Simulated scan of single mutants.
Amino acid sequence: MGIESKLTSKCQTTIPAEVREFLKIGAGDRIGYEFVEGKVVLVPKNRSALDLAGALYVPGRKPVSIEEMNEAIADAAAEKYERSRARR
């Protein structure tokens, strides 16, 4: 495994220096957490959206059009709605 840190009894952790340097974050900066393909990704909130261009690039994966993205979002929303109705 790569870089690690440990949770305290209050479920807090220190982000290792190598990660802070890579993300260009420091004391007082905000970070977000995103779930991407079964993993949690740290997203610095002190950067512009343009700084994140290519962050989700996966070699070999074909590009997806806006229309395909919208269709996938609509399908996922419909599926979630149907699952919620089935639980009633």
Results as ranks from 00 to 15, higher is better:
R20Q: 12
K80R: 11
E4C: 10
G54C: 01
A53S: 10
K24T: 05
I3M: 00
E79P: 08
G26T: 11
G54S: 05
D51G: 06
A17T: 14
D51H: 11
K39I: 00
L23A: 04
V41E: 11
P16L: 03
K6R: 15
A17W: 14
G2D: 09
G60N: 01
A27G: 03
S5L: 05
K24F: 03
A17Y: 14
G28K: 01
C11Q: 11
G38I: 04
V64E: 13
C11D: 07
N46F: 03
S48F: 10
A27C: 02
A72Y: 04
L56A: 09
P44V: 10
Y33Q: 05
Y57C: 08
T13C: 07
K39H: 06
K80C: 12
P59Y: 08
N70Y: 00
L50T: 15
I73F: 15
A86D: 08
E37M: 01
S84F: 14
S9M: 10
S65P: 01
G2T: 09
P44C: 04
S5Q: 11
E18G: 10
A53R: 12
G54M: 00
A72I: 01
L50I: 15
I3W: 02
E18L: 02
K45D: 13
Y33C: 13
S48R: 12
A78P: 13
E67K: 15
E37H: 07
G54Q: 00
G32P: 04
A53V: 11
T13R: 10
K45M: 13
D29R: 09
P59N: 01
E68M: 12
M69P: 06
E67W: 12
I15E: 00
G38A: 00
C11A: 06
S5C: 12
A49E: 07
L50W: 14
R88T: 00
K39P: 14
V43G: 01
R83M: 05
G32K: 08
I25M: 11
G32L: 07
K6N: 14
R30C: 09
G32A: 09
E68L: 07
S5M: 04
V36L: 08
M1C: 04
V43A: 06
T13G: 08
R20I: 03
G2S: 02
Y81L: 11
I15G: 02
V19S: 06
M69H: 06
E34Q: 13
T8Y: 09
E67S: 11
T14I: 05
A76Y: 12
L52V: 09
K62A: 00
Y33P: 07
G60T: 00
A17V: 09
V43C: 03
P16E: 04
A86N: 05
L50R: 14
R61V: 04
V36I: 08
P16C: 10
I66N: 10
V40W: 03
I25H: 03
Y33R: 08
S9L: 07
K62C: 00
A27P: 04
K6W: 06
R20H: 06
I66F: 09
L7Q: 02
